[in-house]
């Protein structure tokens, strides 16, 4: 059953590194992460890789496999030809710590910039009443496993370090959309999405949707509806007039 596969893995630390070639055993049913683990156990004990659940649920083992962002644990070896060289590199958008491990602290920083769930003050725990159909819209976004592959693939920051301060990225657009669509959230989510989180930078190329391992329709169900509502608000003459009148009172 088994065969020897050719792997080319990016190795390095401290800002330096190179691709190293390996020949490694592969058995039936294995995924790329299994092969990385075999490399650790037999050839390169200090090869750094993040992983936890090995079942596509925790979003730890994001890497680029033949240039495409993938979860190592969900990429089956059977999807490659046996004589194909498989190239494994770290996520490109984030600084490399070592080998396949990158510094993803950017994402945790952005998470902290989205104001938290804000329920009305008078609803007590246990009193929430919501219909399934109303929670399902937000539930889609809460499937997110924070693999950060949408962040990694988004061209706004992938090749433009300078955009990072002003752009939260797809993961946090779905977080904002999730809160905006939460039946009990009372905070204003639309204007901050545009003004503080850089929704306007997105030009809907859907790269994020394509790489999402949870198949969340990031662009169609979160980003586009939010863009439409931001536009509605900004250019609606009544809202414009209202905002002028009430501004002074605020």
């Amino acid at each position: 059953m088994g065969y020897k596969a050719k792997f080319r893995v990016w190795r390095g630390e401290g800002g330096e590194g190179r691709l190293e070639d390996f020949t490694v055993e592969v058995n039936e049913g294995e995924v790329v992460l299994d092969v990385i683990h075999r490399l650790q156990a037999t050839q390169t004990p200090d090869l750094a890789v993040r992983w936890n659940c090995k079942a596509g649920k925790c979003g730890s083992c994001s890497m680029e496999i033949n240039g495409k962002p993938r979860l190592g644990c969900m990429t089956r070896m059977s999807t490659f030809e046996e004589d194909e060289t498989i190239t494994v590199t770290p996520l490109r958008t984030f600084p490399v710590i070592k080998d396949l491990v990158t510094d993803v602290s950017f994402n945790y920083q952005k998470a902290r910039e989205v104001p938290s769930f804000t329920p009305p003050a008078d609803v007590k725990p246990g009193e929430y009443r919501m219909q399934q159909i109303d929670v399902e819209r937000s539930q889609e976004f809460r499937k997110c496993i924070e693999c950060f592959m949408c962040q990694n693939v988004c061209h706004v920051i992938r090749d433009h370090e300078e955009n990072k301060p002003n752009f939260s990225g797809p993961r946090y657009f779905i977080r904002i959309a999730e809160l905006d669509m939460h039946p009990y959230d009372v905070a204003d989510r639309k204007e901050p999405a545009q003004d503080e989180h850089g929704l306007g930078y997105c030009n809907i190329t859907k790269c994020c949707t394509e790489v999402c391992p949870e198949h969340i329709k990031i662009t169609d169900n979160a980003i586009i509806p939010m863009k439409e509502r931001v536009v509605d608000r900004k250019y609606d003459p009544l809202v414009w007039l209202g905002s002028k009148i009430f501004k002074r009172q605020r």
């Binding site: 769930f117 329920p119 609803v123 007590k124 725990p125 929430y128 219909q131 399934q132 539930q139 939460h182």
Partner: peptide, 14 residues
């Protein structure tokens, strides 16, 4: 739930 969790619902919204 008060911290933002969204559990599946019964017909009467619980």
């Amino acid at each position: 739930e008060a911290w933002g969790a969204l559990f599946d619902r019964t017909k009467d919204g619980k």
